[in-house]
């Protein structure tokens, strides 16, 4: 398995190759796509990308946690967490290659 790690640079390179936009434009567009997703999530909206997956927000209540090192009880404040639920297509494609 050539476990290369894909980064923004690879994404904008793919956009540059596939669509033929300039490298600068491609990089900017990749950034805008990610920014739009972030800003929707920050506003409290779930983001559902068909055939990819859903970025889902969940509100967690306050609970009592414990510092694993000291064993001391610490309150964990209510917070919002992000989970990703992959589409069936994504699950299938990941296992088809195996």
């Amino acid at each position: 398995m050539a476990a290369h790690t894909l980064t923004r640079a690879d994404l904008s390179d793919a956009v540059h190759r596939e669509i033929g936009l300039s490298r600068a434009d491609s990089a900017q567009l990749v950034e805008q796509v990610l920014d739009e997703i972030c800003s929707a999530l920050t506003k409290g909206q779930n983001v559902k990308i068909s055939s990819f997956g859903t970025f889902m927000l969940r509100d967690k209540g306050r609970r009592i946690g414990r510092n694993p090192k000291t064993g001391k009880e610490v309150p964990i404040e209510p917070r919002r967490v992000l989970t990703f639920r992959p589409s069936q297509l994504m699950r299938d494609r990941i296992n088809a290659a195996g």
């Binding site: 050539a2 476990a3 894909l6 994404l11 956009v15 491609s26 990941i94």
Partner: peptide, 25 residues
Amino acid sequence: RVVATVFDSIIDALAEGGRVELRGF
């Protein structure tokens, strides 16, 4: 096509056994 390329590239990388790191995201 740009949006499709971004998401397809992510799936392809994972299908090949790799990972995708997008700092800040």
